[in-house]
């Protein structure tokens, strides 16, 4: 029984699940340390972005996104789950995540958060 172990990360398809912006990430591993699945593992190179090792096992709880102090992580719903919304006044129809969706907006969350 060898203690030498290897990770063979799964390929990025069909679901990316979560992406890490290497320009923002400082390799603090906050996301790794909160991930319930071990989808994220620390990069063997200190200070580099974590490895998205098992995206196929991801539950999409996004605790990693919440934990990132630098806003470097983003969850991505798979294409088959991106539903439409319709602007009531104009009847225009948009799809979540589509290139032509309206400019990004933040709906004011209720205070008290």
């Amino acid at each position: 029984m060898s203690d030498k172990c290897y990770v063979v990360p799964n390929p990025s398809g069909p679901t990316l699940a979560v992406s890490i912006d290497p320009d923002r990430c400082v390799g603090c591993n906050s996301c790794v340390n909160i991930c319930r699945i071990q989808t994220l593992l620390p990069n063997p190179v200190h200070g580099r972005p974590p490895i998205v090792a098992y995206p196929d096992e991801c539950w999409y709880c996004a605790c990693c996104v919440e934990a990132c102090p630098r806003g470097a992580l983003e969850m991505h719903l798979p294409i088959n789950q991106r539903i439409f919304f319709k602007r009531k006044e104009t009847g225009e129809v948009f799809r979540i995540g589509a290139a032509d969706s309206p400019s990004k907006s933040y709906f004011q969350p209720p205070v008290g958060w």
């Binding site: 996004a62 919304f85 006044e89």
Partner: peptide
């Protein structure tokens, strides 16, 4: 559960505006 970031944030960042929009 699982809606603060993957729905609330993600949808609003995709332009979904609850004051103007209807969800399919």
């Amino acid at each position: 559960g699982k809606s603060r970031f993957t729905l609330y944030d993600l949808y609003t960042r995709s332009g979904f505006d609850p004051e103007k929009d209807m969800l399919m």
